[in-house]
Simulated assay, not measured.
Amino acid sequence: MKYRSVFDIIGPVMVGPSSSHTAGAARIGLMAGKLFGVTPEVIHVTFYGSFADTYRGHGTDVAIVGGVLGFDTFDDRIPESIKIAESKGIKIVFETSEALTDHPNTARVNLKAGDETFELVGISIGGGTIEITELNHFPLRLSGGGPALVVLHHDRFGAIAAVTRVLADHEINIGHMEVSRHEKGKQALMAIEIDDRMPREVLEEINRLPQVERSVMIGE
């Protein structure tokens, strides 16, 4: 893995105790919450590997819930995130699994609001850095070595061209790109690794595209 600066090695500004079990978990939750786009009624988290063994002691549980609520790694509200969520009427469910995964720090986050559901599988690879390996049952292979744009969109003619045109207009170079769909004309996914961090106004421009449901950055 390539580090962009010494701060990637030291880790992010965060509420402790662990960059991988707390900060990374918060970022997994934050990614899930941003992509879901609405306040969930249920947050169901399954922990695997070392996450399953230590999630209470290392604050992985409160970190993921805090992330879903929109709390970043340095937010002082993270230790109280479960109480905050429950005060909003959100049901919290934690479970562990002995299933083998590719990485020991793996969590599956399932969010529900009304009839809408969303699922994301993320791993914390250290120093607060995460990878998303599955999103709404779409497999991902993002390297985690740099910034990446994840776009949920309608499977329509011109959707991919519209997103890449915005990137080109802002002179943002694509290093790797994957596109996938489950069914013609339904929800589809773009995962785009880019060379440099993308300005927030560019992300907002992409989110205004009529074909796009939601998009977020990993590694911003």
Rank of each mutant, 00 (worst) to 15 (best):
S143D: 04
G175M: 02
G144C: 10
A148E: 13
L142C: 06
V166F: 01
M177P: 05
A159C: 09
E171T: 12
L152Q: 12
N173D: 11
T164N: 00
I172Y: 03
M177A: 13
V150W: 02
T164C: 03
P147M: 05
V151Y: 04
H170E: 07
D155H: 14
G175W: 00
I160D: 13
V163F: 04
H176I: 08
G144R: 04
L149N: 06
H154N: 15
A162Y: 06
R165F: 05
G145Y: 04
A161K: 06
T164I: 03
S143L: 02
V150P: 08
D155A: 13
M177I: 15
L152T: 10
I172H: 04
I160R: 08
A161D: 02
T164F: 02
F157Y: 14
V151K: 09
H154L: 08
L167V: 03
A159Q: 08
L152H: 12
L140F: 08
V151I: 12
R156F: 10
G175K: 07
G146D: 04
L149V: 14
H153D: 11
V166Y: 02
L149M: 11
I174V: 15
R165V: 00
F157M: 13
L152Y: 11
D169V: 05
L140T: 12
E171K: 14
G145C: 03
I160E: 14
V163A: 07
H153M: 11
